[in-house]
Amino acid sequence: MDSLVVLVLCLSCLLLLSLWRQSSGRGKLPPGPTPLPVIGNILQIGIKDISKSLTNLSKVYGPVFTLYFGLKPIVVLHGYEAVKEALIDLGEEFSGRGIFPLAERANRGFGIVFSNGKKWKEIRRFSLMTLRNFGMGKRSIEDRVQEEARCLVEELRKTKASPCDPTFILGCAPCNVICSIIFHKRFDYKDQQFLNLMEKLNENIKILSSPWIQICNNFSPIIDYFPGTHNKLLKNVAFMKSYILEKVKEHQESMDMNNPQDFIDCFLMKMEKEKHNQPSEFTIESLENTAVDLFGAGTETTSTTLRYALLLLLKHPEVTAKVQEEIERVIGRNRSPCMQDRSHMPYTDAVVHEVQRYIDLLPTSLPHAVTCDIKFRNYLIPKGTTILISLTSVLHDNKEFPNPEMFDPHHFLDEGGNFKKSKYFMPFSAGKRICVGEALAGMELFLFLTSILQNFNLKSLVDPKNLDTTPVVNGFASVPPFYQLCFIPV
């Protein structure tokens, strides 16, 4: 009986604490739906499609509103004006990374994606500088992407125009580009180590996009005490870190300090320079996690976009025909596509942009946080508050993009057929937390897609009208449904 009384008292205290925290903070924060004790607004949000729920709530509470995930307040920004004001106009104040408990377990605050403060700034600055020195957006990395595009075309030829699921092959190409940047090595598509790495990356994007992960991140005790797919994700990350550590040891034994070959060499050189400046942010643990982040951000996002792009091109054969006509006119058949071609191919450029806009790969991006107490639109948001960005509300804005739910390359073309930029184009987020590999991803999408369409016609196994382009999961990332196609050599 005594234990029951204690339990009831504990629960009562928890409920009172929950109510007090919510009521004391709500006077400062933007308005929002009334949260339930302990669980907050979790029942009012469709976990399978958070973005749709945010759109519905914005119609009631406006472009800036507050939700509670458990006891934790989260300020939501919906629509271009609110997102721009926060991420661009007040970029420094909104540059923090929001709480992501599962990532905390995986990387302990290291790396480039989930770190904060001085650690994040130094690692991000170093990573950007190193990638630029190796030619991100310049010639040397373009050579690597072109080489991988040629290998991709050869792998597709091996399908002999038979029906195939493109998931694996389209994942190999961007993964190999990242391998060449980090390890100075590309792998054969049949290499077992490479296959294991690909498998872990593919599993992780599916797990991260599941409703279960949303629950884990908002009720963090689940991570330590409950079984579930989150444990598989943590094991996959541990596998990748151990693999990278092996490569780091190989580099330490063979590195030429006067001739760095890749990202690992550059990081080890930085560690050597910083060894007298303790404590340094440049450690082996930081290198492991930064490399894992580059793999995660640079492989599955690009391969998922490529997979979605081919599905949309199957669905819209008239678009595919126009792209192939432009390829034939500008590039021809006797040389590989290059980035200089893009400025002469406005329709193809528009298609690449429209694919990214339409699929809305990361509907709410990753959570941000404010780095200080900030007054925002007459609300006071306390330091450390998590900020949720609705990228969907920007990419699918119906004023900027008429009929935003329709796939239409003319969203990025003017009346004369010239490519038209849009400030609403934010597939990689915006501001200080914009994806480090934005330029690389854009290069890969253009070169891989043009190389495929230069060499193959795409054949659907069903009537294009019957192809479903609805994402199968739409949590962290929008993942396309399973499909097969035939690559018919031109």
Rank of each mutant, 00 (worst) to 15 (best):
H230V: 10
H251W: 02
L447E: 02
P337W: 01
L14S: 06
V145A: 02
G442L: 05
D191M: 01
S23Q: 14
D397T: 04
E155K: 01
L9A: 15
I112F: 12
P174V: 07
S422Q: 05
F295R: 00
K241A: 03
D224G: 07
M255A: 13
G298A: 14
P30L: 01
F267G: 05
T283V: 08
P279A: 14
I359V: 06
I374W: 10
Q22C: 10
M198W: 06
L128H: 14
F295Y: 04
D408E: 06
T283S: 07
I213A: 13
M406Y: 11
H251L: 03
T167M: 05
G109M: 15
Y483Q: 01
D463Y: 06
N204E: 04
T302G: 11
V153C: 11
L90W: 15
G79L: 00
S422E: 03
I374H: 04
S242N: 14
S209M: 08
G111R: 05
F126M: 08
V436G: 06
Y225Q: 06
L485D: 00
P73A: 03
K138G: 10
F401H: 04
M339H: 06
Q324S: 12
K200M: 13
K235R: 14
Q192P: 13
D373G: 04
L485K: 00
F446T: 00
L208Y: 07
I331R: 01
R357L: 01
P481I: 08
P367S: 04
M339E: 07
L314A: 09
K118I: 13
E85A: 08
A297L: 10
S460A: 15
L16P: 03
F456E: 00
F282V: 05
K232L: 08
N107Q: 04
V319I: 15
V113G: 12
K273Q: 11
E85D: 12
G437P: 07
V394S: 12
K190M: 11
P471G: 07
G98E: 11
R335W: 02
L458H: 00
K28E: 10
L234R: 14
A82E: 04
K249G: 07
R342L: 13
H316Q: 03
N217S: 14
F110T: 13
L14K: 02
L311F: 03
K72H: 15
K206S: 14
F134C: 07
R157P: 01
L287V: 03
G296A: 15
F428P: 06
S254Y: 09
E142V: 04
D165Y: 01
I264P: 04
N334L: 11
N231E: 03
T392E: 07
S286W: 06
P404Y: 06
G32V: 00
S286G: 09
S242T: 12
C266K: 12
S220G: 14
R108K: 10
R144V: 13
L467F: 04
A161I: 03
V355R: 00
E203R: 03
C151R: 08
V113L: 12
L234G: 08
A291N: 01
V237P: 02
I213F: 15
L128E: 10
E444M: 05
Y347V: 03
P337G: 02
L413N: 01
V292I: 12
F446C: 02
T229S: 15
I264V: 10
I284S: 09
D224L: 07
D256T: 09
E415R: 08
E415Q: 13
L197N: 00
N202K: 07
I182G: 01
V8N: 00
C10Q: 02
V83A: 04
P363K: 03
Y483D: 01
Y243Q: 08
F226D: 03
G46A: 09
S180T: 07
L77N: 00
N474V: 07
F282Y: 12
C486T: 09
L449A: 02
R186L: 01
P402G: 09
Q146A: 11
I359S: 13
H344F: 12
N334T: 09
F401Y: 15
D191G: 02
T386W: 06
K241T: 05
M198V: 15
N204T: 11
Q454H: 04
D2V: 13
L195D: 04
I74C: 07
N289M: 12
V436S: 03
H316A: 05
S336R: 11
R307E: 01
I182N: 01
D373V: 01
L152H: 00
T305M: 14
C164F: 06
G298S: 06
L453A: 03
P382N: 04
L449E: 00
W20F: 15
L453C: 06
S422P: 07
M129N: 12
V6I: 13
T66G: 01
A350D: 00
V436T: 06
S303N: 05
E93G: 10
N259M: 06
P402F: 08
N176H: 03
F446Y: 06
R132M: 13
E285V: 06
E415A: 15
T159E: 05
S95R: 04
N202I: 10
I205V: 14
P174T: 15
D191R: 00
T229R: 10
S220E: 13
I47W: 15
Y80P: 05
G171L: 12
N133H: 09
D341T: 02
D2Q: 07
S429I: 05
V462C: 11
